[in-house]
Deep mutational scan, measured.
Amino acid sequence: GPIITTQVTIPKDLAGSIIGKGGQRIKQIRHESGASIKIDEPLEGSEDRIITITGTQDQIQNAQYLLQNSVKQY
Rank of each mutant, 00 (worst) to 15 (best):
T5H: 04
I60P: 00
E32C: 05
S36F: 07
E44G: 07
I51Q: 01
N69F: 03
A35S: 09
N62Q: 07
S70Q: 12
Q57L: 03
E32Y: 02
K72G: 15
L43F: 03
Y65T: 14
E41A: 08
I60T: 07
I10C: 04
L43N: 14
I51D: 01
Q61K: 08
I37G: 00
T9K: 14
G45Q: 13
I50W: 03
L43M: 11
T6R: 10
L67Y: 01
G55N: 00
I3D: 11
A15C: 02
T6K: 15
I51M: 08
I29T: 05
P2N: 11
A63I: 02
Q73E: 12
Q61C: 09
S46P: 03
T9L: 02
P42N: 09
P2C: 05
D13E: 04
L66V: 05
N62V: 08
A35L: 00
A15W: 02
Y65V: 12
E32T: 08
I19A: 06
Q57Y: 09
N62M: 08
G45F: 10
T54V: 09
L66Q: 13
T54P: 00
D48L: 07
Y65F: 11
Q28V: 05
T9G: 09
G1W: 01
L14W: 04
D58M: 10
K38P: 01
Q61A: 09
E41K: 10
S70L: 14
Q24I: 15
G16M: 14
T5L: 01
K21P: 07
R25T: 08
G22L: 08
D13M: 10
Q68L: 04
I3F: 04
Q73D: 13
P11G: 07
E47D: 05
H31C: 10
Q28H: 05
T6V: 01
Q68M: 03
S33W: 01
Q61M: 07
K21S: 13
P2T: 15
L43E: 11
A35G: 03
D13K: 11
Q28A: 13
G34C: 08
K12D: 08
P11H: 02
T5Y: 02
T54E: 14
T56F: 06
P2V: 12
Y65S: 14
R25Q: 12
G45S: 06
L14F: 05
I3W: 01
Q59N: 14
I60F: 01
G16F: 06
L14D: 15
R30D: 10
S70I: 13
L67C: 02
I53K: 00
I60N: 14
S36M: 15
S70C: 13
R49D: 06
Q28T: 11
T9Y: 01
I10P: 01
T54G: 08
I10N: 01
G1Y: 02
S17Y: 03
D48R: 04
Y74N: 11
G22N: 10
S33G: 01
H31D: 15
S46E: 10
T9E: 12
S17D: 05
I10K: 01
I37W: 01
H31W: 08
I4E: 02
E47K: 05
I39S: 09
K38W: 04
T5V: 02
E32W: 02
D58S: 09
N62R: 13
A63F: 05
G16W: 09
K27V: 10
G45C: 03
S17L: 09
Q73P: 15
A15K: 03
E32S: 10
Q59Y: 00
T56A: 09
T6S: 06
G20R: 07
I60A: 06
A63G: 03
K72Q: 15
I18L: 14
I18W: 06
K72W: 02
I29A: 03
L66Y: 06
Q28E: 13
Q64F: 01
P2W: 04
N62T: 12
H31P: 01
V8F: 03
G16H: 08
L66C: 07
Q7W: 01
Q61N: 11
T6F: 01
V71P: 04
T5R: 01
I60D: 00
I18D: 03
I37C: 06
Q64I: 01
T5W: 00
K27Q: 15
S36L: 14
Q59M: 02
Q24L: 05
T9R: 05
N69K: 07
N62I: 05
Q28M: 12
L43H: 07
K38L: 09
I29V: 06
G23C: 13
I4D: 10
S17G: 09
A15D: 06
K27A: 09
I19E: 04
I53F: 09
I37A: 02
G1F: 02
S17E: 10
D58Q: 08
R25C: 09
K12H: 12
L66K: 08
N62A: 12
K72H: 10
G16P: 14
S33N: 01
K27I: 11
E41D: 05
S46L: 07
G55W: 00
P42Y: 05
L66M: 13
Q7K: 12
S36I: 13
E41T: 05
T5C: 03
K72F: 02
Q57T: 08
N62W: 05
E41Q: 10
L67S: 01
V71N: 13
R25F: 05
I37M: 11
I18V: 12
V71I: 06
R49A: 13
L43Q: 08
P2M: 14
T54A: 11
D48N: 04
S46Y: 12
I19T: 12
A63D: 00
I50G: 10
I26Y: 04
Q59A: 09
T52M: 08
G1C: 08
L14I: 10
T54L: 03
G23L: 12
G1I: 15
E41S: 07
E47A: 08
V71W: 05
T54H: 09
Q7D: 02
G23Y: 13
Y65D: 15
I53W: 00
N69A: 12
P11A: 06
S17V: 07
P2F: 08
T56M: 06
G20D: 14
R30V: 12
R25A: 14
L66D: 12
I37Q: 00
K38N: 04
D48E: 11
G55S: 00
L66P: 01
Y65H: 15
H31L: 04
D58L: 12
G1P: 02
Q68D: 13
G23R: 13
I50V: 14
Q68A: 08
D58R: 04
Y65E: 15
Q24W: 13
K21F: 07
G20F: 05
D13V: 05
